[in-house]
Design a protein around this nucleic acid. Structure first.
Length: 356
DNA sequence: CTTATTTGACCTCA
DNA sequence: TGAGGTCAAATAAG
């Protein structure tokens, strides 16, 4: 249940951040879409956890099913109307290596790597103080075992643009939560390389890791190398299958979001199954993504009328005024701050009493 | 109190 | 042998 709370809280937090960023990011639909992806992902993860606790499939899947696009009602199925991924310097987004490995789709989000970036590049604190302390009392170093570097099996390198709003020095987020465990100056590189592993390593034995390094010739682009698969709970959730993943709009989306629209944890064969069979979950998410473009127009419209009214604008601007998803959105966006306190209780007080 | 970050030291491998 | 990857103590932050 803690994980559910965590995921729901994360979704609220992301939604709150998204609201805060709307004024500055309103002209960046690709970024906004990525942020919305993050919110959906958090909720989806919570749903999957709840399903493990025995929530009926139908009930647990409802919120996402509510996102399902009424295929007959819109024009979103045409490639040209897929959400407008900004052609952000395609050269920066190209994939360097193509191996049977897949990176998360949400490379533009930024919630997961907490505060690492600022500290990374500002060069903070603890280490220096510790150095001073340890210099006074150098402890004998015990030989340690198990530092294996081998397992260079699955590896994938992608180029990710730095954030274009807020703190551009924050390393890119990919929808997972990472914990930094090292930083290294690389020979011939102006910028250090940071090493991250999955936050859930200790809980789920998740071995996913990534290296993040800024490019020498383009400090606003990060080279992110993913190593290993996520085996943790949240990360096994197929993140997003972007609309074109199954066919139609390969030319309209950025290479990164197109080619990498699946979770790390998915093996190639899984991806095929994933794309072909379109499981309930992925379908819901998938269609939920398709729901975004129309919303953007509403968001843009809402900008002029005041952000606070956005949820209602979304509901009224959409073709389907009975979009049940809007109830979810309404809850999300009307929940006030992302701190989640009272609104979270409002949502889950009854569940808590059920003592999962 | 718990969790994340920093960073020097240590380990592996080319 | 040295570059790159990892560990873990010290520390910061919430």
């Amino acid at each position: 249940m803690e994980e559910v709370r965590s995921q729901i809280g994360e979704a609220f937090r992301l939604a709150g951040e998204l609201m805060d960023e709307l004024p500055t990011a309103q002209n960046d639909p690709a970024y906004l879409a990525a942020r919305c992806h993050g919110v959906v992902h958090a909720y989806t993860t919570a749903i999957r956890i709840l399903q493990r606790y025995g929530a009926p499939q139908q009930l647990a899947g409802e919120p996402l099913d509510l996102l399902r696009l009424r295929s007959g009602s819109g024009t979103e199925e045409s490639g040209a109307s897929q959400f407008p991924v900004e052609p952000t310097t395609p050269a920066h987004l190209r994939r360097l290596q193509v191996e049977p490995f897949h990176v998360p789709a949400d490379v533009f989000g930024r919630h997961a790597v907490r505060a690492a970036g600022a500290a990374d590049f500002a060069g903070a604190s603890g280490g220096l103080l510790r150095r001073l302390a340890s210099s006074r009392s150098p402890s004998p170093v015990q030989p340690r075992q198990g530092r294996r570097r081998r397992e260079s099996g699955q590896r994938q390198t992608v180029m990710v643009p730095a954030q274009r709003t807020g703190n551009t020095e924050l390393p890119p987020d990919d929808g997972y939560t990472w914990r930094k465990y090292g930083q290294k100056d690389i020979l011939g590189s102006r910028y250090p390389r940071s090493y991250y592993r999955c936050t859930h390593k200790n809980y789920y034995g998740c071995d996913a890791k990534k290296k993040v390094q800024r490019l020498d010739d383009d400090p606003f682009t990060y080279e992110v190398t993913y190593c290993g698969n996520h085996s943790c709970l949240t990360s096994t959730t197929p993140l997003f299958t972007l609309p074109d993943a199954s066919a139609t709009t390969a030319t309209t989306n950025s290479p990164t979001t197109v080619a990498t629209g699946s979770a790390l944890a998915l093996a190639p064969e899984d991806l095929l199954d994933h794309a072909q069979s379109a499981t309930a979950l992925s379908t819901s998410i998938h269609l939920g993504m398709s729901w975004m473009p129309a919303s953007f127009q509403s968001i843009q419209a809402a900008m002029g009328a005041g952000v606070g009214s956005m949820p209602m604008d979304v509901s009224t601007a959409g073709k389907d005024t009975d979009y049940p998803a809007l109830d979810l959105a309404d809850v999300m966006f009307n929940s006030g701050s992302c701190s989640g306190g009272s609104s979270m209780e409002g949502l889950f007080s009854s569940h808590d009493r059920r003592d999962f």
